[in-house]
Design a protein around this nucleic acid. Sequence first.
DNA 1: TTTGTCTATCGTAAGAAAACGATAAACTAA
DNA 2: TTAGTTTATCGTTTTCTTACGATAGACAAA
Lengths: 111, 111
Amino acid sequence: MAIAKTEEFTAKEQNLASFAKALSHPARIAILKILAEQNACICGKIVEVLPLAQSTVSQHLKELKNAGLIDGTVDGPKSCYCINWKAFEKFNAEFNSLFSALKIQNEKACC
Amino acid sequence: MAIAKTEEFTAKEQNLASFAKALSHPARIAILKILAEQNACICGKIVEVLPLAQSTVSQHLKELKNAGLIDGTVDGPKSCYCINWKAFEKFNAEFNSLFSALKIQNEKACC
DNA sequence: TTTGTCTATCGTAAGAAAACGATAAACTAA
DNA sequence: TTAGTTTATCGTTTTCTTACGATAGACAAA
C-alpha cells in the first residue's frame, strides 16, 4: 500500500503540508524569488533564466498556481505571473500558530 | 529523464526547498506538533497517536531527523525525540530573507 | 491569410516517496 | 538465560513527482 494517507490528518496539517510541498523544489523557490524581486507581473522570460525545459517550467508554474502562491493571467500570446502575498501571509500565520507560539516556553526544556 | 536537477540551483534555494520538503507531509507536521506541545523529549508513544504503521512513522522520524528539524537520542530500548528549534529559526530566517524583505515594496505593484 | 512566437497540455520514462509487513537489533526484566 | 518490549531497517508494492520532447492553441505581425 502506497497511497498517501493524507485524509487521516487534520485540515490544518494538510493545509500546511500542502504549502510546504509547493515550496519543496528549488526550481519553484527560484521562480518565486524572481517574481518577488520584480515590481510588476512577469510576462514571459521566466523560462529563459531557469535551467529547465519550457514544459517543465510551465508545470512548476501550474503547481505554484494550484497552491495559490502565485496568480496568473493571460496577456495575448503571453502569460503573466505574480506572487500572491496574501497566500504567503497565510502560510506564515499557519506556521506560526502551530510552532512559534509554543517555542518560547519550551526552548530550554529538551534533552 | 526524471532525475531531479537540484544541483542547478543555488545552495540557498536548495536549502529552503529541503526544509519545505521535510514539512510537506501531514504526518510529519503532526509529529512536529506533538513534539512542540511537550515540555520534554518524547520517548515512545509517537506511534500510538498516528494512523500509520510503526515502520512508516519510523521512516518519517528519520526524514525529520535528516532534515535537522528534530533531534533523537537512544534511551535503552526506546528512542527519544525532540524539536530542534534552532533549525526552525534557520528556516524562518531563510524564508524571510528571500521573501518577506521584498514584500513591503511590492505589495501593491502587481496586476 | 499565413507565418511566427509564446505557453499549456499530452504522452512518456525514470526516479523518489509513501506505505506496509516481516525481521533484526538493543535493551529490560523476569 | 530467556522472554518481552521497543524501534530501526529491509524488501516490496503502488503512487506521485520530475523531466523531456512533441504538439496544439492563442494571439500578433507580416
